[in-house]
Design a protein around this nucleic acid. Sequence first.
DNA 1: TTGTATGCGTTATCAT
DNA 2: ATGATAACGCATACAA
Lengths: 332, 332
Amino acid sequence: MTTLKELAKLLNISVSTVSKALNDSHEISASTKKRVIELAEKLNYKPNRIAQQLKTNKTKTIGVILPTVKNPFFAQVLHGIEKSATDNKYDIIVCLSDESLEKEERSLELLSNGSVDGFIMAVARESQVKEQSEHITGIIDSRIPILMFDRVVNEIICDKVVVDDFQSVYDATEYLIKKENRKHILLVSNIEELSVGKLRIKGYQKAVEESGLDSNVLKLGNVDDVEANIHNYLKAHKEIDAIISIDHITGIIAINMAKKIGRIVPKDLSVIGFGYEHTQLLSSPKISIIHQKALEIGKMAVKLLIKHLNTEDHELQTIVVPSELKLAESTK
Amino acid sequence: MTTLKELAKLLNISVSTVSKALNDSHEISASTKKRVIELAEKLNYKPNRIAQQLKTNKTKTIGVILPTVKNPFFAQVLHGIEKSATDNKYDIIVCLSDESLEKEERSLELLSNGSVDGFIMAVARESQVKEQSEHITGIIDSRIPILMFDRVVNEIICDKVVVDDFQSVYDATEYLIKKENRKHILLVSNIEELSVGKLRIKGYQKAVEESGLDSNVLKLGNVDDVEANIHNYLKAHKEIDAIISIDHITGIIAINMAKKIGRIVPKDLSVIGFGYEHTQLLSSPKISIIHQKALEIGKMAVKLLIKHLNTEDHELQTIVVPSELKLAESTK
DNA sequence: TTGTATGCGTTATCAT
DNA sequence: ATGATAACGCATACAA
């Protein structure tokens, strides 16, 4: 790699002159600038990022800690983060906790040695279940900003970008009741242990209770054969005329199982799940989805974190990104 | 952040003594070590990563450039890369090209300023279609190692980790012919433009030709309504008794469409696609899959790249990771 | 056993 | 307009 020193030597001028010339300082004459820039281009000089970071004490790098990218929601959020980071001339260092508390702790620990200016994270399933978060507060105490999205820890005060978990499911349930006149709505879930799962279930429960309907919740978070479970439930409960899935898997499985036992979707059984473009592509008949604006969430997260990094007395805030109910096709 | 200098001042000893003490140098007395280490722990001292990088001229960071993580194959590879990198005390900086040549160029350019020791990449769709790769050779010429996986550029000589694209599809096709006695096998694809897609199609073609069967290839890479296309094709070609999908989407759609027109899967119509655990979970009846060992690919990639980084006269190599045919259920 | 000095590549301050 | 020097935090060769 070409350095300032090398350029200086070749041009028989000082390092500082070269540096100033490349930074277009008014102190330097046009002719010198020209000479410097030409040689720099010829030798493909690029300022060493590490040296700049050491000098300025800013890495222009964001640590991103995600549970997984196999979940399309997080994959899409990552796209948003990456895009926005690039646009703002930030790099991202990505760590995947794989839903493990220990990995999450280690990642935060390792990157808090000056590698990043701040973090964007969604907490691991295990961390949420065990309600452990000292590793997170520790980082915040050491004055490295953390922004949490989606799966957040309520007790921790920091920037947050969240989905309208409660409201979106409440609205979807109400839609099924009021517009489609459904009477027996089942909620299926494989994420009832997560903060977001709990909120979504509450949204459902409030809606059915307000309409005097029964609450039916099928929790599959720790179940091996999800298919068989849903299959059996639907067979035993022929009265079910609508399903809300609060994750991006069980809704599609529910459609498949419903078809298997001869129920017509969406006529007999209306199905709404969480999901994205992909989700709808893979189900037939098309599933209706609560579409989380994952890309936006990622972009918002970066924007807010960078604002925090650049603001002296930043005020912590929580942004709620509304979801959108995307109906597959009109039903009843 | 606590620095060596601060520790030295507080302890009234020199910076170098502190440094050596923390690095457990034999030059330093046990008592001094103890004092230093205790204070360091108390103040939660961590060596500044940036300074270390500048000093050693090694970043211990790998640049990872992927087309997308919405594709579960790349998501899973990323998991493998992250895991193996962490195990080897490397960080990863992730860039997503979003299948764009320009973004890929920019990412390589930006990170080749000392930010990373080497790259792991799968080239963008656009780069493959336009057959552009000067941006990649440029980096290699500047002596930053690149490892390419999955979607590789044949003309570029570098470390590679690839899937047995040709062979796996050849084998799967042969299985359908020999074991299941299928006579009219359709290949569906939405990635016929990619290097891997071309190889897979060739594997299929060789197998059908060897058995004297017809080759039927349905290319959907640039098609809007994939569902309708497959639906119409199957309706117009009732003789089709097996489908091979060479991506992770069209196979599931094919199953859904086949059911729609009353064909019994897998009795009437056997379907094999590319995919992962997820893929099988989302289809009903279960799709058979050619399972690419994505996690392994990621791990291999890191292992080989690090070997390259640590070896004076590294010999470039290409590793082929075999896939595995996972049958959903026995058929005929 | 401990300390001093130097350099990694850059930027910034202060001469000249 | 240009150059000399110091500093960022760390590691290390060398001196004491």
